[in-house]
């Protein structure tokens, strides 16, 4: 057989480079941005849920839970921020599982693109969703009487810390999504794991009020460290309520920073490695 010229015009491809790594990451990010725009459910859920949480907690519980030296609304805002962004990072898990199931990851993996680009695009998508949630929650909080009692710089640091932690957690979820392969399972499991994790913490009540076993859990819970760090940076630590006496609770900002670095160092390479091996079944 001889090779004949194709009827379809050949196009030259350029080899991968650092520039193409950035461009691949941007292209897959853009894909997720289009999805956010076209599937409004995600955005509606992302904005309504935090509004609902802020209103429910500050009006339903505010009268019954007494935080010495502070208002309940002021106390729980950091908790709601932390809970919302942690849940926001789970999209990466279900989205990777969904892409895997639909064969879209197979398609990407047969293209001469950077293997990390799909994951970068995915986690960037979560970051954007979480940033939108943060803006909505901050606005709602300010309306119901929450006040930032620190410097603007510290407040920005608090927001950055929350978003960074959630970003690092997105990489964990992406890895889990590729391992579990079922978007439904991811959603159910994250609900079952993250609800206790965010509730058995200092997010909604001072950890000192919890029964001893739960208190111990809460004081070592990484979510508590994140909440405490945000509370400190927003200047919302209630003067009257004791902070847990674990190192994690006493030094929440370094704890969270170390946690972010540790999650990224482990799960970025692990997820990229996993991505290079998964294929639809």
């Amino acid at each position: 057989m001889t090779t004949t010229t194709s009827s379809i015009r050949p196009v030259a491809t350029r080899p991968a480079s650092v520039g193409s790594w950035f461009s691949d990451g941007w292209i897959t990010t853009r894909r997720n941005l289009i999805k956010i725009r076209r599937v409004p459910d995600i955005l509606v859920f992302t904005t309504l849920q935090p509004i609902m949480f802020v209103l429910l907690f500050s009006y339903v519980y505010a009268g019954s839970i007494n935080i010495p030296g502070s208002s309940y609304t002021e106390f729980i805002m950091a908790g709601i921020f932390a809970q919302t962004v942690v849940f926001g990072s789970t999209y990466s898990g279900s989205a990777m599982a969904q892409d895997l199931k639909e064969g879209i990851i197979d398609r990407f993996r047969t293209l001469p693109m950077s293997p990390s680009a799909v994951l970068i695009g995915r986690t960037n998508g979560d970051l954007l969703i979480n940033a939108i949630s943060m803006i909505v929650m901050i606005a709602t909080g300010l309306i119901v009487g929450w006040r930032i009692k620190s410097s603007p710089l510290e407040a920005i640091a608090a927001i950055a810390l929350l978003l960074l932690f959630a970003y690092a957690f997105s990489w964990v979820m992406a890895f889990i999504g590729m391992s579990v392969r079922s978007p439904e399972v991811i959603n159910n499991v994250s609900f079952l794991v993250l609800f206790p994790l965010t509730f058995i913490s200092n997010a909604f009540v001072p950890s000192g009020n919890l029964p001893t076993p739960l208190r111990i859990f809460a004081e070592y819970n990484p979510v508590s460290a994140l909440v405490q760090a945000a509370r400190e940076l927003f200047g919302n630590v209630p003067p009257g309520a004791p902070v847990g006496d674990t190192w994690l609770q006493q030094n929440p900002i370094p704890t969270v920073l170390v946690g972010i670095v540790a999650l990224l160092v482990v799960f970025v390479p692990l997820s990229i490695w996993k991505f290079g091996r998964v294929s639809a079944r």
């Binding site: 030259a12 461009s23 293209l111 001469p112």
Partner: peptide
């Protein structure tokens, strides 16, 4: 998107 991921520009 596929074209861009092939780095066609």
């Amino acid at each position: 998107m596929v074209g861009r991921l092939y780095h066609l520009g």
